[in-house]
């Protein structure tokens, strides 16, 4: 293989992904596009970490849009188990069928003399009730069954138990899962898998090893402006600059919860609604509750609003 031409090819592919994601309204830097590209090239899941609200979940949605594949989402929570994540037998249907088939069973048994013969007859049919017909697919199995491949989003993996994390290993490594009664189910087409984590607990090494690790930090000022531009296009450029500059300042202060990108977008929408032409301290103060979600934070920041606003208005 020619090293520099492979670099050019992958660079082009990454640029294409970046443009494709931008077309769905998701503006991202090189690193995110690289991760999406690698995920497809190496057929490996991507573990996305980063502070809340930087667009981890959004990335999966945008990728699904971009690739034109269905998005299958599994929200993790404490106590999530296989029955809810993978598959469940349709007990009701099984029961109903046995009732209906009861008489048929009598017919089948007719003529069989002795217990052994009846058992042999039964053995001929024993797998009837444990086949895919009676399987209720949950998100993970659905992702494997999807014909043209899917985008699987396993959201907030850190909220699930460690047991569930271990259970995911087989799926993430080989894109297959074992169902005791049926056997191994292999993916028809490898899905693109995203796992997100807010780092409320440390993710196990075994899982990390199987994934490409992508850390999404808060965007820098330029990128955040592009994001706002794509999401709130009606907003004037000067106000956009001021908004972003203000939020960037806010992130450097010690707060219980710093404003995320989604909050910046909300704030931009709010200011648009209020027909704001320029930030001023009074306006900021009244709309502060959109950026900050803790009363303590709002009170702590109050004294600094004037200075920050002035700096934001002066920003170029």
């Amino acid at each position: 293989m020619n090293p520099s031409s492979s670099s050019e090819i992958s660079r082009a592919a990454i640029d294409a992904i970046q443009a494709g994601l931008a077309a769905t309204g998701y503006i991202c830097g090189d690193s995110i596009a690289t991760a999406v590209y690698l995920a497809q090239a190496l057929e490996k899941p991507v573990l996305i970490e980063g502070p809340p609200g930087v667009g981890k979940t959004e990335l999966a949605k945008a990728t699904a849009d971009h690739l034109g594949k269905p998005l299958i989402r599994l929200q993790c929570y404490e106590g999530l188990d296989e029955a809810k994540a993978l598959y469940e037998w349709k007990y009701g249907k099984q029961l109903l069928y046995t009732q209906v088939l009861k008489e048929k069973l009598g017919d089948l048994m007719e003529g069989a003399s002795g217990l052994q013969a009846s058992m042999d007859r039964l053995h001929e049919f024993d797998d009837t009730f444990f086949n895919e017909e009676f399987l209720e697919p949950r998100p993970l199995l659905k992702a494997l069954w999807t014909e043209q491949g899917a985008v699987l989003l396993i959201d907030e993996i850190d909220k699930s138990d460690q047991e569930f994390e271990a259970f995911l290993l087989e799926l993430l490594q080989d894109y297959q899962i074992s169902i005791p009664e049926i056997g191994t189910v292999k993916a028809k087409h490898s899905p693109v898998v995203f796992l997100t984590s807010n780092n409320t607990r440390e993710i196990g090494d075994a899982l990390k090893r199987r994934c490409i690790h992508l850390y999404i930090p808060f965007p820098d000022s330029r990128l955040e402006q592009q994001i706002i531009e794509s999401r709130v296009p009606e907003l004037e450029a000067s106000v956009r600059l001021q908004i972003v500059s203000f939020v960037q300042q806010l992130r450097t202060v010690d707060l219980k919860k710093v404003p995320a990108v989604s909050e910046t977008i909300d704030w931009a929408r709010t200011l648009l609604l209020l027909h704001a032409q320029e930030l001023d301290p009074q306006l900021v103060r009244t709309t502060m509750n959109i950026l900050l979600k803790f009363q303590d934070d709002i009170e702590n920041i109050d004294a600094e609003i004037v200075g920050m606003t002035r700096a934001a208005v002066g920003a170029r």
């Binding site: 520099s4 492979s6 670099s7 090189d30 690698l38 190496l42 994934c211």
Partner: peptide
């Protein structure tokens, strides 16, 4: 997949594959 000649790209992608925190 990536090749050696694009240094920035190589750094970014290797960092995603090798460094996990």
């Amino acid at each position: 997949v990536i090749g050696f000649s694009d240094r920035g790209l190589l750094k970014e992608s290797l960092s995603q594959v090798l460094a996990k925190s």
